[in-house]
């Protein structure tokens, strides 16, 4: 109950009212594994494309080819998951009917379409050896779209009313960037002979570090604007909490393994798998945290009440 006689007349109520405990928001219709899978593949494709272009530029043929094929395959897989998520998959192309800067999904669709085309071209060229200049040019282009593809998904999730996602708008792009780096690095170091895989291992390490740091701040709610403790709660609890903890463990282990992966292919493969697992766990964790925060009205109501009470 509101306190009486205090200086502030509008002390937020300790308990909160709700309509039979029902959510205020709609549960996102996005599902697992589609959405988290798409996040993973998008990140992988984006980072892999950048890796391939750099490998091209630095003359690392195997790494480039692996990067190109990974980027193209992941973009295709991601697109497939995205389309499968649509209520009307046959109308996928309606995404390209307009370009709407206010819609991250519209922006993302154009990026994905461009990126998918470029990675496809460069991979085809890389695999077949036809028109290598075109492949390289396309690859260079994909190196520009890749980082956008890997990180716009943070905006995609954050630009919703889902409190955990929305309030994580600072963290999610960095988290996804780190995770994308780690994923691409993991594929690179697992698939490419040790000698050429140095950059991949370094990408994996940097990515893992970024991922761990971003996930850590997200779980704590550090940097969230309001009710950080409450809004970040879904990242620490329940299914999402478990997944994120598991992800962190896998990523840390993968990173540790990466340190020795330069000496052992087996270590490279194992740490690559661990990093991939970590990246997947992170994506699923973020996804489920959103669901949890949409489903319990307290995540919507309590921060909003507080905001209203303080006039913020």
């Amino acid at each position: 109950m509101p306190k009486r006689g205090g200086e502030r007349s509008m002390v937020p109520r300790a308990e909160f009212g709700s309509y039979y405990g029902r959510p205020v928001l709609k549960r996102p219709r996005w599902q697992a594994p589609h959405l988290p899978g798409y996040l993973y593949f998008g990140g992988l494709s984006g980072a892999a494309a950048a890796m391939a272009a750099m490998a091209d530029a630095t003359g690392r043929g195997r790494l480039s080819l692996t990067g190109r094929v990974t980027a193209a395959t992941a973009a295709a897989a991601g697109s497939a998951l995205l389309i499968a998520e649509l209520g009307r998959p046959e109308r996928f192309l309606n995404m390209l009917r307009v370009f709407k800067p206010t819609s991250p999904m519209s922006v993302g669709s154009w990026v994905l379409a461009t990126h998918g085309g470029l990675t496809g071209l460069s991979a085809a060229s890389g695999v077949t050896g036809i028109a290598p200049w075109l492949g390289r040019a396309a690859g260079a282009g994909a190196a520009l779209t890749g980082p956008v593809l890997a990180t716009y998904t943070g905006v995609l999730m954050a630009d919703t009313a889902v409190p955990a996602w929305h309030e994580g708008y600072r963290h999610l792009p960095l988290l996804f960037a780190g995770s994308a780096l780690a994923s691409a690095g993991a594929v690179g170091m697992a698939a490419v002979p040790r000698g050429q895989a140095g950059p991949a291992r370094r990408m994996a390490l940097l990515g893992a570090g970024l991922e761990l740091a971003a996930a850590g701040t997200l779980e704590k709610g550090a940097g969230m604007r309001e009710q950080a403790e409450l809004i970040s709660e879904p990242y620490r609890t329940g299914r999402a909490g478990t997944l994120l903890r598991l992800g962190r463990g896998l990523t840390a282990a993968g990173a540790a393994g990466t340190l020795v992966a330069g000496r052992s292919r087996t270590a490279a493969v194992v740490s690559g798998l661990a990093l991939t697992g970590g990246a997947l766990c992170t994506r699923f964790g973020v996804f489920y945290a959103g669901l949890a925060s949409a489903e319990d009205p307290k995540y919507t109501v309590v921060p909003q009440r507080a905001r209203r009470a303080t006039g913020a």
């Binding site: 984006g46 530029a57 630095t58 960095l174 370094r202 970024l210």
Partner: peptide, 18 residues
């Protein structure tokens, strides 16, 4: 803005890795 920063960071990390 944050996504742009993250994309730049990603690109930067890739570059640094090479």
């Amino acid at each position: 803005k944050w996504a742009g920063g993250a994309a730049a960071a990603l690109a930067g990390c890739v570059a640094v890795s090479f």
